[in-house]
Structure formats: structure tokens, C-alpha cells
């Protein structure tokens, strides 16, 4: 079956809650067209706002997106959603499973409370990326995230599980209260990184990342090449290049901090 294509019929002036995409499941095109959504103060049908082509509601493509589109992929479950263009706030909010590919930038609070699935962002994300949503204390509960660009400030709060790969920079006050999970940051790191972290694994190349941490040892870590191999399968690209890392850990004075940091060794 053809994937379902959604294209806006006009340039949106008001914000649209795009979480209605979750209602597409097991529905015919006729039923999808008649789903009602709010646009400004009006209640309209999907077909009034979007041109819809195709038939497969488990594989959706949205083209010509705008920052007026909010909650794209909210509570997304078992759906493959591709988004072309920049989108607004709260994308992948509490996403459950499936794949969300965003070919553009995203606004605030992206992937807040995400519980599973795969999220690929081929642009930058705004502040509060993977921050705690209103419904949960944890920013990222599980899932795999890839960000080709940079990530804003106050991001990744109380991450419980999952893997985040950031190709460029990360802002201030990020990765606070880290509980577990893996974060790979290839660019620069802002201030107050890893405040009050408990566990978790960080891979970084900016020396700032190890501030306040002690060099652990040069032991062999079999898991790094192993993990690199698995991540290559998930992200379809090499995200952990080489196996030459220096390991840093929290100091003895703060024995509750078991976070480990792997700093790329410069040759």
C-alpha cells in the first residue's frame, strides 16, 4: 500500500495540534478526511486543511511543514512518520513506538517524556529537548534519538534510559539529574553540564565534559566496539567512531555519582 501523504492546503496562520495523526490507525481515507481538528477558533475536518494522498496510515509523510504545527508525533505508536520542513514545539511528546523522521528544525520541548521508538532529527532542536513533561518526572524514559544539528539549553532532564546521539553542540544546563542511558555529543558542550547526575554514560570530545571528573583508567572496554556495532544498525551510520577513549568517573567525595564519561582520545 502507498504511504499516506499529507500536504497543507494553505500557509497556516494559527497553531495546529498535530496529535490527530494517532487517530489514523485502522481508518479508511474517508474516515481520516472527516476527523475534526481545531484551527484557530474553528473546528474543521482534516481534508479542509490537508491534501491527502495514499492509503497506508501506518506510513505517513507530511510535506511543506511549518512551525505552526505542534505536537507532531505526540504519543506516536507503531507508525512510521516522516516530516519535511521545520516544525513547532512538543514534537515526539511522550512518543511510544515507531519511527519519526524530521527533515528540518524542531521547536521547544521536543521528545519530552519519550517512552520508545526512534527519532531522527536532521536539523537543530530548540531548548528543553527531552525535558520532563507535565505528566512525568523523567525527560527520556526510553528510545533512540539522533540529532544531526545542535540541541538547545535546559535539555535532557532526568533521562532514565535510551540513547541520544548529537552530532553538533549542546546548550547550557543540559543532562541534569541523569539517571541512566547513553548520550553521545560530538560538538561543544555548554555550562553546567551533568548537574546532579547519578549514573549514565557520556561520550564526548569537548574537554569541558570531564570538568569535575577524575580520569579512571586505560582498561579495555569490550562494550565500546560492541555498542558501536549495534548503534550502527540502529542509526544506519557510524556514531561511535574508533575505540580510543579515556574514561572519567565521578570523584570519591561524591560517591553517589556513578556517571562515566568517555572522552575521545586525541592522537
Amino acid at each position: 500500500m502507498n504511504e499516506l501523504n499529507l500536504t497543507p492546503k494553505f500557509k497556516f496562520e494559527y497553531k495546529i495540534d498535530m496529535s490527530f495523526i494517532n487517530d489514523f490507525k485502522n481508518k479508511t481515507i474517508k474516515q481520516i478526511n472527516s476527523i475534526k481538528i481545531y484551527y484557530g477558533s474553528k473546528c474543521l475536518r482534516v481534508c479542509d486543511l490537508f491534501k491527502i494522498k495514499g492509503a497506508n496510515p501506518s506510513k505517513i509523510i507530511i510535506t511543506n511543514c511549518s512551525t505552526m504545527m505542534e505536537n507532531v508525533g505526540k504519543k506516536l505508536c507503531d507508525t512510521h512518520l516522516t516530516v519535511h520542513g521545520n516544525i513547532g514545539n512538543s514534537a515526539a511528546l511522550e512518543m511510544i513506538s515507531g519511527t519519526l523522521i524530521i527533515k528540518g528544525n524542531v521547536g521547544l520541548s521536543c521528545a519530552s517524556g519519550m517512552r520508545g521508538g526512534k527519532l531522527f532529527i536532521y536539523g537543530n532542536t530548540g531548548d528543553k529537548f527531552c525535558s520532563s513533561p507535565n505528566t512525568s518526572r523523567e525527560g527520556l524514559i526510553d528510545g533512540n534519538i539522533y540529532v544531526r544539528g545542535s540541541v538547545g539549553s535546559n535539555s535532557i532532564q532526568r533521562m532514565r534510559r535510551g540513547i541520544i546521539v548529537i552530532e553538533k553542540n549542546i546548550g547550557d544546563n543540559c543532562c541534569s539529574n541523569l539517571i541512566s542511558g547513553t548520550i553521545i555529543v560530538k560538538g561543544k558542550i555548554g555550562d553546567n553540564f551533568l548537574e546532579d547526575s547519578k549514573r549514565g554514560t557520556i561520550f564526548g570530545s569537548d574537554k569541558k565534559v570531564v570538568k569535575g571528573y577524575r580520569k579512571a583508567n586505560d582498561a579495555n572496554y569490550n562494550f565500546i566496539p560492541f555498542m558501536g556495532k549495534l548503534l550502527e544498525l540502529i542509526y544506519d551510520r557510524k556514531v561511535l567512531k574508533g575505540s580510543s577513549f579515556l574514561r572519567y568517573q565521578g570523584c570519591l567525595a561524591n560517591s553517589t555519582n556513578l556517571t562515566e564519561i568517555f572522552l575521545t582520545r586525541k592522537n
Binding site: R161, G162, I163, S180, R199, T201, L230, L231, L258
Partner: peptide
Amino acid sequence: YQISKKIN
């Protein structure tokens, strides 16, 4: 001191 990694 054990560390878990959940992948896939």
C-alpha cells in the same frame, strides 16, 4: 558498580 545498557 555494574552498569546496564539497553540497546534495541
